[in-house]
Amino acid sequence: MQGFDEALAAAWRLIVTGDTALVEIAALSLKVSLTAVFCAALIGLPLGAALALARFPGRGAVIVVINALMGLPPVVAGLLVYLLLSRAGPLGPYGLLFTPTAMVIAQTLLVTPIIAALTRQVVADLWTEYSEQLTSLGAGRLRAVPTLLWDARFSLVTAILAGLGRAMAEVGAILVVGGNIDGVTRTMTTAIALETSKGDLPLALGLGIVLLVIVLVINAAAHLFGATARRAAG
């Protein structure tokens, strides 16, 4: 596996030299994906919890749609956002296309269904355990939402990490709406795609290894933090 050796060497070089372009790209990747996951959590957590508790006609259909949207191809999400933000589109006047903001919007669209669907499952399970007690204490379904989200917080971290994984890994959506502009919208994944198409496979794989390390560090941090908090909260 000669290519693999080269890739490891490239990754090592990138990390130890603290390549400024790499730092910029990695920082943008993190910033975009974390922002998108934050927004998606803001929408997905209450949406998922509401779907777990609410009873309305068509609820089943909404759940199926959201579950299916977990498989939304990134390129399709990218195209939707592209058409929305393009100068010829409804949000064109804001001039958001080919900016990091556009990438955040596209990734939010990708991540929200994941967080909402997983949240719905977690909260629905918890609700079967809590419903009588909370009803007895006088909490209506609406009031139960924040309580259930808070008590499910350790499971929900996993849902959020799943969303972050999708955001950090995807390239299709941000390539379309970000344009992979050097120094403006180039992220880890679009840089990997670019180096692959330039045939510089070791550098592409090296960047991939760096990305993997970043994601690994985030997950390890979340795990440690979660374990500590869980011990403290029982």
Partner: peptide, 23 residues
């Protein structure tokens, strides 16, 4: 209840939570 459902918070907070719901 036979199997009490306690919230994932402190013992004290479990009670203040119930009090806040009662209002």
């Amino acid at each position: 209840f036979q199997r009490p459902v306690l919230l994932r918070r402190s013992a004290l907070a479990n009670i203040t939570y119930a009090l806040s719901l009662q209002g």
